[in-house]
Design a binder for these strands. Structure first.
Length: 193
DNA sequence: AGGAAGATCTACT
DNA sequence: GTAGATCTTCCTA
């Protein structure tokens, strides 16, 4: 049902399936009592050690989180930007979904203030941009997104399954021979075509 | 303690 | 289209 939080089981599937189905869902964040939300329009799936672009390959804390409980936030820094991922994989697997872009829905004025950018099209059209617009940082690392308790969760919103386009992942040094980036075709808020 | 590596962004031409 | 800024994490000593 609309406006319900997506349950943990949603994330207990192959990362590519979860990445595709996250398109059209609502990413919600509450900042000092104000509700901010945006519709997810671009995602990427990452796997375990068999994936040359995956952080799981390097071991350490990120690898541990990617291999454990699904539905938790995985947040880390790249080039001075926080990137927001959600742990997702089949039982006993390893993986995560990177949220690359979303379309602002509620709380746009707050996002503009956080970003220092007035052009709404460029507010959340990139993984580092959307975390800054929604004030998502290391504090959320490891926190579940299938409950509202931490001020960050995902809700059902729209069914855009008929408009999904796939491509190779953006910015990775070495990719898999599979298209693991998914975005909403024609949507002006994706990071690139 | 220091250096290098990024799943990036912005401002410029 | 590309150079330069960015800043945390991880690795080596």
């Amino acid at each position: 049902m609309m406006s319900d939080v997506i349950p943990k089981e949603f994330y207990l599937r192959d990362p590519a399936i979860v990445a595709k189905e996250l398109l059209g869902k609502l990413l919600v964040r509450v900042v000092s009592g104000v509700k901010l939300s945006c519709m997810i329009v671009e995602t990427e799936a990452y796997y375990g050690v068999e994936d040359p672009a995956s952080r799981a390959r390097r071991g350490g804390d990120l690898a541990r989180v990617m291999a454990s409980d699904v539905g938790r936030a995985l947040v880390f820094m790249v080039h001075g930007n926080w990137l927001f991922n959600i742990v997702a994989h089949e039982e006993g697997g390893v993986g995560a979904i990177l949220i690359r872009a979303c379309q602002p829905i509620e709380g746009i004025e707050v996002m503009i203030r956080s970003r220092g950018v007035r052009n709404v099209t460029k507010l959340t059209n990139g993984p580092g941009k959307l975390t800054k617009a929604l004030s998502i940082d290391k504090r959320f690392h490891g926190k579940p997104v299938y409950v509202r308790d931490y001020g960050l969760w995902i809700e059902y919103f729209q069914d855009l399954s008929s408009t999904v386009v796939s491509s190779y992942r953006v910015g990775v040094r070495e990719d898999l021979p599979t298209k693991l980036r998914f975005y909403v075709g024609g949507n002006p808020y994706v990071s690139r075509k």
